[in-house]
Nucleic acid binder design. Structure first.
Lengths: 350, 350
DNA sequence: TTGTAAGCGTTATCAC
DNA sequence: GTGATAACGCTTACAA
């Protein structure tokens, strides 16, 4: 079933069918009707591949996601969902490419075989070879996260430094004098993962500014790591009374370690950070946190990419999102000193 | 940069370049080297669109996922990740289509514009118009889940009925006389969602077989719903001592409701079900459950689809997975009667 | 061993 | 208002 078949059955030429469909040149109403009837009857739709070849664009965008090994967290998941949705609204399809390393087969296919009109690149590292590859291929792209000094590319990012600074100030205002940053995994930190680095920057700046003692520790991206880490931390620092984090996946573990230590949030210990709304509201009590607007980011990323595909020569735009910190119930005034369960029991008795 | 340019620079014809690349006809070593040098220098890769048009296949498969509204659970997520991975290994790209309703734009694009060589259809409903649409379009596809009586399609499914039956028997063997099935959301049950229906079937059969009282209740796919539901259930049925579930997302809520009621697992209450390994191991204590092999399913789905694309006329194959129930620590002998916290305190004192 | 040319299904230019 | 026809970039039968 192709345009020639439709033309034959409607008794017109192929170009007339094409024009009738695109409206790029007037077609007599009677002819148009005749053509439309045949099309409806046969359920014809122009072949996307042929159209792409002719038009020089695929109406498809690539979404480069972290490889399967690193399980996507809820923030990333929401982002993917919203990209796919926004793309569908713009009549674009989304091709997925799981790629972490620099010489990934599927990424390379996407780029060099020109399967897509543009790319959204998730989880950019501070040094990221894929950026250069995309620029070299002259393929429009939008990064989620930004590289070191590069202003030559479009990106959208969350202002992790600013947000972590915000949360630290909030804790300092509540009287906390020793605060931990539970960062992302040691691997990511070592790999120069932007959010981890910038969170650390913001943390260092804010603790210095407010004269509080800061402990910056990486933590595996899962509940168990969170639990183990916090247990060790509480043990090593009896005067630690608060933490801030960008490690969503560790939150359930953090919660458990606090439970196990008999610490009540926020009376005995305050917790805050940057997280997807879902995680924040799933914490008990609900987490005072900067809610990452992942859904919004997907929309914005697609919009930016569409714009860039349309006019590749305009100067690249950058969007740095700084969502407000939502005050929920997981932060409170610093306790005089952090009671151990035994002391608490004693205090209750007296 | 196209094949003509390479041919020109290497001083050969386009077909020689093509053959040199595909190996489908011998090329003199010297010529081949000359061509390869030019290709390497210019980083040429054949245009996927043109190749697809010529060959009549896109080397792309479609993955139809539930729309963004319904947040994917971890099982689905693992499945998507493994499909993308397996596809990449088979040098196939994956086009994502979020579609729930029957007349979805992006689904229709996928099918009728022939953007893909085959489709993996997630979350099939017992009556699913998309199945008919795919058959009509003669597009190879593999369903995750199966429709009512249809043996005319390829599918992979988890044997929810069998697994739930297994878990109920296990509970009955431990002496539990009243057991609940925490099913998926009321909407899904009403929509004729296969796993929910089949879990209910298996539950009904097993409770009848063992003469235990079964309570089959739907539950929203989130922690809060799980918490509310279980609290109500414990209240309404003081003699309820165990539950089985296929609702992963409700597990954290179930855990909380049990905590709140002062019930210790498995001494006071047993919990089991069907879940992704991650959730099972995240439960406290680790959940005795049938671990859904989501990663394995992705691999199998791609393999099945590839096979089907290669030979569309062979009789469709069906794979019904019945992973074993992993004994962990969340099930135990039924208590004489379920102690309320007050009674427990009394018991401890005596 | 290599070159020529047809054709995949479109769109768009030119001619009528 | 409509029809022939040349591309788009590739693969492959046919010729040499």
């Amino acid at each position: 079933m192709n345009i020639g078949e439709i033309a034959r059955r409607a008794g017109v030429s192929r170009s007339t069918v094409s024009y009738s469909l695109s409206g790029k040149r007037p077609v007599a109403p009677t002819t148009r009707k005749r053509i439309q009837d045949v099309i409806d009857e046969l359920g014809y739709r122009p072949n996307a591949t042929a159209r792409a070849l002719k038009e020089g664009r695929t109406r498809t965008i690539g979404l480069v996601i972290p490889p399967a090994g690193n399980r996507l967290n809820h923030m990333q998941l929401d982002f993917v969902a919203s990209v796919v949705d926004a793309a569908a609204r713009a009549d674009l399809d989304v091709l997925l490419s799981p790629s972490g390393g620099d010489h990934d087969k599927s990424f390379e296919r996407l780029i060099s075989e020109r399967r897509v009109d543009g790319v959204i690149l998730m989880e950019i590292r501070v040094e990221d070879a894929r950026v250069g590859r995309l620029q070299q291929a002259r393929l429009p792209f939008v990064g989620i996260g930004h590289t070191a000094g590069d202003e030559e590319m479009c990106w959208i990012d969350v202002d992790y430094a600013g947000l972590i600074r915000h949360t630290v100030r909030h804790l300092a205002d509540l009287g906390h004098r020793k605060v931990a940053l539970v960062n992302r995994s040691p691997e990511l930190v070592a790999a120069g993962y932007g959010p981890a680095l910038r969170a650390a920057e913001g943390f260092a700046a804010a603790t210095a500014e407010r004269g509080v003692t800061g402990i910056d520790v990486p933590c595996g991206d899962d509940a168990r790591s969170g639990q183990d880490l916090l247990a060790a931390l509480l043990d090593a620092h009896p005067d630690l009374t608060a933490l801030t984090t960008i490690n969503e996946a560790a939150l359930p573990g953090i919660q458990r370690a606090l439970d196990d230590a008999g610490l009540v949030v926020p009376q005995d210990f305050s917790v805050t950070g940057v997280a997807a709304t879902l995680w924040a509201e799933d914490f008990r009590p609900p987490l005072t946190a900067a809610d990452v607007p992942a859904l919004d980011m997907g929309d914005k990323a697609v919009a930016l990419l569409v714009e860039r595909i349309a006019s590749p020569s305009t100067p690249p735009r950058h969007i740095l999102l700084a969502p407000p910190v939502s005050l929920r119930s997981s932060t409170g005034a610093a306790p005089a000193h952090r009671a151990a369960p035994a002391e608490k029991a004693a205090a209750t008795r007296s």
